[in-house]
């Protein structure tokens, strides 16, 4: 990787991260409209009006009001916040929709555990730990929860974070528009093993993805109910794992059991998927 490529947020690999980067750039430009003049003005004023005997600059100790000036500096921030606000609201609503309507989305169920990430593919019937494989150029609907203290699901190059909350089903749309391996990490502290809760998103062309699914189904072990419980209870980090199947309904049960049963919205999200 060259130096620049390490700025993951600035190197988006999908439309969601690109929208976010665009907003970041817009916001930087807008705030610089204030920051740069203020810095220059500060340097100028503190130099020009220094208190030394031969300073010829005007001295007006009683001058303390100017309607015009004050209107200007109430006005400029209002305008900037107004412009940025429009962009922000637009993007906030845009990001809750799938990034692309033409392709049918893939659903991946994400569970934060102490201290690893479990990914379940309801349509493929497979499960993985600490690695999530997705087809490129196809929107992916991540439905996120936690069977652990709350965490955050963050893949900087694909797009922003969504929390993993016990008892809640959180939806995050992401899409990779090229094949690649992307770094991801937990976004909210969950205890001793949190620092090592990194995972990888592996994006490949649809055909390779299908082949990979088939391979996992054939060659990987099954995740049994007791294996699932072991993962939940282990309180440790885990290497990448692949499973050809997982206990049916474990994701929904986890959410219901931890308070999802009281939340209409979350019930509707998990029911809509099934």
């Amino acid at each position: 990787m060259n130096g620049n490529a390490q700025f993951l947020v600035l190197n988006p690999a999908g439309p969601v991260a690109r929208i976010e980067l665009h907003l970041i750039v817009v916001s930087i430009i807008l705030v610089l409209i204030i920051v740069i003049p203020v810095m220059l003005l500060l340097a100028y004023i503190t130099r020009r009006y220094r208190d030394h005997p031969d300073n010829t600059a005007p001295y007006m100790p009683e001058w303390s009001e100017s309607k015009l000036l004050e209107i200007i500096w109430w006005g400029i921030p209002v305008a900037i916040v107004g412009i940025l606000g429009v962009y922000t609201v637009y993007d906030t609503f845009a990001l809750v929709r799938p990034p692309m309507k033409s392709a049918s989305p893939l659903t991946v169920q994400v569970t934060s555990l102490n201290w690893k990430w479990l990914f379940q593919y309801p349509d493929q019937g497979i499960a993985t730990v600490n690695e999530v494989d997705i087809p490129a150029n196809r929107p992916v609907q991540f439905v996120i929860t936690a069977n652990s203290p709350m965490n955050g699901f963050w893949v900087p190059q694909l797009g922003g974070q969504e929390y993993a909350m016990p008892g809640m089903a959180m939806r995050l749309w992401l899409e990779a528009d090229k094949p690649g391996i992307f770094y991801g990490h937990g976004g909210n502290f969950t205890g001793r093993g949190y620092a090592k809760m990194a995972f990888h998103v592996v994006s490949r062309p649809q055909r390779d993805f299908d082949r990979w699914v088939k391979l996992v189904k054939q060659s990987s072990p099954a995740l049994t109910q007791s294996g699932y419980q072991q993962l939940v209870n282990a309180q440790s980090n885990t290497p990448t794992l692949l499973f050809s199947s997982y206990p049916a309904g474990s994701f929904e049960r986890t959410i219901r059991h931890q308070g999802g049963m009281y939340m209409q919205r979350d019930l509707s999200i998990i029911n809509a998927d099934r």
Binding site: T88, G152, Q161, N188
Partner: peptide, 11 residues
């Protein structure tokens, strides 16, 4: 404060 920007800065 720009919510979608914050998705990338958060924590």
């Amino acid at each position: 404060a720009t919510a979608p920007g914050d998705y990338q800065y958060h924590n």
